[in-house]
Design a protein around this nucleic acid. Structure first.
Lengths: 141, 141
DNA sequence: ATATCAGATTAGATATAGTCTAACTACTGG
DNA sequence: CCAGTAGTTAGACTATATCTAATCTGATAT
């Protein structure tokens, strides 16, 4: 489908379009969960050619730096990744740690006075609670 | 100062006020940075009595569960902690990973339709960019 | 087409962050 | 004073991520 788009976005960032990197990006774009690095590695390795752990982490780092992928740190768990396609907020489940997308809406920025000399790059909203799967069970707590 | 307040808040949560736990909380309350677990351990161990790594992590976990301390996960770095005093947002520096407080203001909640069956507990805003110390250097990038 | 070489990949070693275990200690209520 | 519960501890262990050094690849110029 948009293989060409992926290739172009790599080149725009000065990154070669290697099979491993392409497979990683294609997986992230079609994947509607927010996989961990380990899950990404496993998924890519079901295809051909395979990729190593180091390469997966290298590529994730490069793609995050290029602004093509977003990394979401989760307390006490492995980081999650997603392709920065449509703008969205994140919901993190207290119980299972899963990260889910929530419809985007604009967020008011802080007053520039309170920012001081800081340089603001982005601004994200994180919701916490119980996901649809964990809510019934967790209700007892 | 508010030693009694700390003691009371522990008891309200069903936690004993032990010297190690008290020292941890007192340090977090007077500390205006957002220290990592390792920094907290080191600070507490400059006093008497000392605390161990396991105890520090145990106490941090208990205090987070009790809602007295907040944990902030940072991509690729150790988690940061702060005493949940005044409500505030967080600014995370892309370059040095430091977490800083930003004046609190209300954030619009998502429409309940998009939440579905999820149970919302809290909602925090995370700003990213370069802190005042890193901004000048990072400006070149 | 082919040579070139910066950029990419790899396995495995290493580092870092956090958790677990099992023995021990210290409060608390009776 | 005793029993029971909660807390502490050192050190082993696990999980996550990074580094190293050797090797390979693919875009570019020839």
């Amino acid at each position: 489908m948009d293989a060409a788009a992926i290739k172009r976005s790599f080149e725009d960032s000065g990154l070669r379009c290697t099979p491993q990197r392409y497979a990683l990006m294609a997986f992230l774009m079609e994947c509607h969960r927010h996989p961990t690095a380990a899950e990404i590695l496993e998924a890519v390795n079901r295809l051909d050619p395979r990729s190593s752990r180091a390469t997966t982490y290298n590529n994730l780092r490069d793609l995050v730096q290029a602004g093509l992928v977003r990394e979401v740190a989760v307390e006490g768990r492995a980081a999650r990744f997603d392709a920065k396609g449509v703008h969205h907020h994140h919901f993190i489940c207290d119980h299972c740690g899963n990260v889910e997308d929530l419809e985007w809406y604009d967020v008011p920025r802080p007053r520039s006075r309170s920012l001081g000399k800081r340089v603001l790059r982005e601004c994200e909203l994180i919701f916490r609670g119980l996901c649809a799967k964990c809510a019934p069970r967790g209700a007892s707590r």
